[in-house]
């Protein structure tokens, strides 16, 4: 594991802090820029999802020879219909969140777009676990 962060629900002011730290660490490790960018974009969306929807959450980053894996476990309302949530533009964010510029229904699709593998497990009224991977070797993207 190379990083772990606690994220508080509704803490909009700190949105992006975990992502900033992840990027810094990946840069320290010499991970290729294009991969860092995909991870940064996906991790930011995941971080914001916890802030917008959950009570709290933990974001972990693991790295092995093959890929960077991000795991986000939150305690929150859960997602009743994951397929629906994956659709571009679908959002259950309240209006005040949308006014802050979040909750446009792009989060999960963006994570999918920027990762090579993604999985969501969710239990209503308990919480959601999101995992995604970005391959270190960019050529592997086509294999999946």
């Amino acid at each position: 594991m190379i990083a772990e962060f606690e994220i508080q629900g509704q803490d909009f002011k700190r949105a992006g802090e975990a992502c900033f730290e992840i990027k810094n660490r990946l840069k320290r490790l010499g991970i290729p820029p294009g991969i860092i960018r995909r991870i940064a974009t996906a991790a930011y969306e995941a971080e914001v999802n916890v802030i917008v929807y959950a009570h709290k959450g933990t974001l972990r980053v693991n790295l092995d020879d093959q890929c960077v894996e991000v795991t986000v476990i939150d305690v929150g309302p859960g997602i009743p219909d994951i397929e629906q949530a994956m659709q571009v533009g679908y959002s259950t964010a309240p209006p005040y969140v949308k006014q802050l510029g979040y909750g446009s229904g792009m989060g999960l699709p963006n994570i999918k777009k920027n990762s090579d593998w993604m999985e969501i497990q969710s239990e209503v009224n308990r919480g959601t676990t999101l995992r995604f991977k970005v391959n270190l070797n960019e050529s592997q993207k086509q294999d999946r």
């Binding site: 320290r28 490790l29 010499g30």
Partner: peptide
């Protein structure tokens, strides 16, 4: 091209250990 300014080590394993 990028400059290896912030990198801890050329070797990923060593860099992870340093981190």
């Amino acid at each position: 091209s990028p400059r290896a300014g912030m990198r801890l080590d050329e070797n990923l394993q060593v860099a992870m250990e340093k981190l």
